[in-house]
């Protein structure tokens, strides 16, 4: 499920919506807004969403991108779904640690290990 104007790659694996990013840097406001719209559409399109967001290949991220992730987290929780983040590089994981968001999000080392955690 992707289209020419999309900023994400979205696939369905065993009922889990797996999302990866087309950009290495998630810092541009316009792109972040588009990412938010697309992920929210994925979440809203499923009764009880199971979502895996992989940061494979992403090397930069801003606080605005964190805001989008938090919005997604809150939306998934309202629907009693599950959200995992995976493949986060060391520098970006440091941002999660500084903001203590590593305590709020379910984070797996790899997509493969995250997939095993979905119930």
């Amino acid at each position: 499920m992707s289209n020419p104007t999309s900023v994400l790659n979205i696939s369905d694996e065993a009922g889990v919506k797996k999302i990866t990013f087309m950009q290495k840097s998630i810092i541009d406001e316009v792109v972040i807004h588009q990412i938010g719209k697309e992920i929210v559409a994925v979440i809203d399109g499923v009764a009880q969403p199971k979502v895996l967001i992989s940061f494979n290949g992403v090397d930069h991220l801003s606080s605005a991108a964190l805001g989008v992730l938090i919005t997604c987290h809150n939306r998934v929780r309202v629907k009693n779904g599950q959200l995992y983040l995976s493949d986060i590089s060391k520098p970006i994981f440091e941002i999660f640690k500084i903001t203590k968001l590593n305590k709020m999000f379910q984070i797996a080392d790899t997509s493969e290990s995250a997939m095993k955690n979905f119930k």
Partner: peptide, 10 residues
């Protein structure tokens, strides 16, 4: 923690 904004300064 669940408020989406306010992390830039930090």
């Amino acid at each position: 923690l669940e408020i989406p904004s306010g992390r830039g300064l930090m």
